[in-house]
Amino acid sequence: MPDNFQRVSPLADIAIQGRFGADHGAPGVTLSVRHPVLIATVIARKGKAKALADALKSWRGATVQWAGAEQYFLLDKPFDEVRKKLEGLASCSDQSHGRVIIRIEGPKVRQVLCKGTPVDLHESGFEIGKSALTQMAHVGVHLTRVGRDAFELSVFRGFSESFWEWLTEKAEEFGYQVI
């Protein structure tokens, strides 16, 4: 579909750029909203888990995040292309508008996230590229480590405003920057 319509993020008026919270020193974390983004849920058809995993591994330009048993979030590819490419291997559903991805990065990132998730995010057991499904402040969160001190948090669109409020409040004590 030609993207000649303006996609409006639910955080467009919420995630305002600037420096917030404690203002001493460098910000503890930096927050940004990845928008617009292309996301598809892909779930292996019966008996195709291995074939799907292989197909995803070798797909250049696609970002693949584990999202449950035999299930992934596939980012950065248009949905029509995803469906065509994975025909017969997976059931695909477009979620590009249904989820909001917030990137959080910085030296205090784990101190912020531990206020929400019981998942142990220590780098010894949660390496870059690893994803987890968890809950933070009563909101389901799909979380992926994208760098040593960087995570992507993906939530249902409808919760994004509430989640953003919670997340930024938890970052206040370290000072945060929204970019």
């Binding site: 849920t41 779930i43 292996a44 058809r45 019966k46 008996g47 299930q71 997976a90 059931s91 559903s93 477009d94 979620q95 590009s96 508008h97 249904g98 989820r99 249902f156 669109r157 409808g158």
Partner: peptide
């Protein structure tokens, strides 16, 4: 044994 996949798309639409 059923070959079926399902996911919530409530928020997509």
């Amino acid at each position: 044994e059923l070959d079926v996949q399902y996911v919530s798309v409530t928020e997509q639409w």
